[in-house]
Simulated assay, not measured.
Amino acid sequence: MEAATLPHPLALFIVTEIRRARGAAGMTQEAFGRAAGFSASHVSAVEGGTRALTMDFIKGGDRALTTGGMFERMVEKLGVPSWFLPWLDAERTATQLRCWQPSLVPGLLQTADYARAVIRCDDTLTDDEVDRRLADRMERQVILTGGNAPQFIAVIAEAVLRRAGEDFRQVMAAQIKHLIALAERPNISVHVLPDDISMHVGLTGPFSLARSPEHTWLGEMENQLGGVVIEKPADVDTLMTRWETVRNEALPRRHSIELMKEVVNSWT
């Protein structure tokens, strides 16, 4: 992959710090690369922002500079878990994205107010950490409206739309209107899985899929302890099969938009 992994300032910050530490140690790109397990041209490309910053490179930098894992810890401290880095890169370069969400609006489709409320559910986060994660999430959404925007298809459970107590209804109404507006874009489809489909394979949890420019697929699943990126072909195939099952149970695009409008109208 040939661009910086992270679509926000974290990648630039980490690369800058590694480059600064390399210079302070008096190491050329070639010497650093040998110690880190990469070619000099690879190091040059990462430092120049034309090749992906991966966790392998970050760990290699820690080994080469004998930092005791400082750069890896820095990534974790700044709010991007190491497991998520490959998915962020796959998401940013994808030609197609698929997402099934039974409990929340997908992150790429969230409004700032909705996203803040979701992030705020983790009461261990400081205000600064919440603000940083919110900014990162909003910046990720740029991929859907850029010049090379992927085709994005999301399926969400109807219950997601109706999860709105009196204190959250205004935020949810704005969120649904945002979904409707996004669903009118040619590259975005939002489908609703009706509540009357009581049992289906998607009940086991959310997942996402990304298709690379090289026509390969990568999966991602999140859970209470973090998440996992799915690369093994057999496992990706399983997710693809489950995606097709969930997608086939969902309402068509236009019917889904009408249902979303009905939900908002029922609150006024």
Rank of each mutant, 00 (worst) to 15 (best):
I119Y: 02
L88R: 07
V142I: 13
T126M: 06
T111D: 06
A25S: 08
T126E: 09
W87C: 05
M55L: 10
E244Q: 14
A45D: 09
V155A: 02
I58L: 07
M1F: 07
A234S: 14
A52V: 08
D235F: 11
M27F: 07
V130N: 01
D167S: 15
W267Q: 03
N148G: 11
S212Q: 08
R19I: 06
I230G: 06
L88C: 11
H255T: 11
S198P: 01
M199P: 02
L108Y: 01
F152E: 04
P213G: 07
R92Y: 10
T145H: 14
T111C: 06
V264M: 04
W100M: 04
A164G: 04
N223M: 07
E47G: 02
R132D: 06
L6G: 02
C121R: 15
D127N: 13
E129C: 09
D131K: 00
E231M: 13
A52M: 08
T238G: 08
A24S: 11
Q151R: 14
A3S: 12
E220R: 11
A4N: 08
Q96V: 12
A52F: 05
A173F: 06
I143P: 08
D237M: 05
E2Q: 15
A4C: 09
G23D: 09
R254G: 13
A181L: 13
L182T: 08
R247G: 05
R73T: 14
G69Q: 00
R247H: 14
L209Y: 03
A31G: 05
T66I: 09
S208C: 09
F152I: 04
A52I: 06
G147R: 08
E139C: 11
I143N: 08
A45G: 03
E47L: 00
M221A: 14
I230L: 10
V246C: 12
I188A: 03
V192H: 03
R185V: 09
E17I: 07
R51G: 04
T245N: 07
I153C: 12
T95G: 05
P194G: 04
A135G: 10
R163L: 06
F84W: 13
L209W: 01
N223V: 07
